[in-house]
């Protein structure tokens, strides 16, 4: 099993690294986007998939990363790297501190609260001049598209690595325990509030990292674009299609949705939404645990032993 994983991972890495040598700018652009969403989905998976708290507001951290890095570099003339690091740390702290109250809510209540969080953050950012206000922020054009491809790819790989390390640790088991039964988790001494908030913070850190790179890649950012709720929906859908709680699921989901979207766009702009919608319906009906997720086999399930291919990556 382990060897198969290694070969698979190696193959993905090889294709991703060599892809730019064989193709044109358009493919690189699509590849960058897929890597970006793979990283975002992997970040979402930490809180939504592994911990079982379906966040509808993870775009908040993506947006904060982009907006803060832009504001620091434009208004305070910080080097973009430094601005990015500070932005990521702030977004991570924001995630942790907000997680403390918000993660007391469960299920739909949590989802609605996170949705509101994203909208509230957008409203604040839009009204603060320092953060670009309603106008948005222009950043200098730097580097070639290829650099951003590799950076986004690096963040996606980092996200997968973080997920892998978590699901193979007792911390990962702690999060799975919380997902199974929070009261039971507390009864064995698990500080569930701390564990959940840490997962939310990690999710925020990864999201913000992507946001920071997105801002400089696009060289222009405005709040409505980077706080677009549809971005969270994509993270969620990709994770669910690939397999929530798995290491490779979010990445596979991002690749599938990314490629399907591009194919559909070749026919018409609207076709991509149609395909996305149909894809969700198919997955919900036939693969409720996602492609790599452990499918429950009939009543109670007969599966014994370690998890199938997916759960532990």
């Amino acid at each position: 099993m382990k060897n198969r994983h290694l070969v698979f991972t190696g193959l993905v890495l090889l294709i991703a690294l060599l892809l730019p040598l064989l193709t044109n700018d358009y493919i690189i652009q699509v590849g960058t986007e897929i890597a970006m969403y793979a990283a975002l989905a992997a970040g979402w998976n930490l809180i939504g998939g592994i911990t079982g708290y379906p966040s509808f507001g993870n775009v908040t951290f993506f947006g904060l990363g982009a907006i803060l890095a832009g504001a620091f570099s434009v208004n305070w003339h910080w080097q973009y790297g430094l601005a990015g690091i500070v932005a990521v740390l702030i977004a991570g702290a924001f995630g942790f501190l907000l997680g403390l109250p918000i993660l007391r809510l469960k299920g739909h209540y949590f989802s609605i609260a996170t949705l509101a969080l994203a909208q509230a953050t957008l409203a604040v950012v839009t009204n603060v001049q320092f953060l670009g206000g309603g106008r948005g922020t222009s950043l200098p054009l730097i580097g070639s598209p290829l650099i951003f491809y590799y950076i986004m790819f690096g963040i996606a790989a980092l996200s997968a690595l973080v997920t892998y390390l978590i699901v193979h640790s007792q911390y990962g088991n702690t999060l799975l325990a919380i997902k199974s039964d929070e009261q039971a988790a507390q009864s064995v001494g698990i500080n569930t509030v701390l564990a959940k908030s840490t997962a939310f913070a990690l999710s925020a850190l990864l999201g913000a990292m992507v946001g920071v790179v997105y801002a400089i890649w696009q060289s222009y950012i405005d709040p409505p674009t980077v706080f677009e709720p549809g971005i969270t929906v994509l993270m969620l859908v990709m994770t669910l299609i690939g397999g929530a709680g798995t290491v490779a699921g979010p990445i596979l989901g991002a690749v599938i949705i990314g490629l399907l979207t591009q194919l559909a766009m070749a026919f018409s702009q609207n076709a991509s939404s149609l395909i996305l919608g149909l894809g969700i319906i198919v997955v919900v009906l036939f693969l409720p645990q996602g492609i790599l997720g452990r499918q429950r086999s009939g009543k109670g399930g007969k599966r014994k032993g370690k998890h199938s291919f997916s759960l532990r990556g």
């Binding site: 007792q170 702690t174 325990a177 199974s180 009261q183 988790a185 009864s187």
Partner: peptide
């Protein structure tokens, strides 16, 4: 617990291991 509360996504040994590790 009277109505059992176990960690359904973890194996039996991981259930015990997590409690001991914690």
């Amino acid at each position: 617990f009277q109505i059992t509360r176990i960690f359904s996504d973890l194996t039996l040994d991981d259930n015990v291991r997590l409690a001991a590790w914690t």
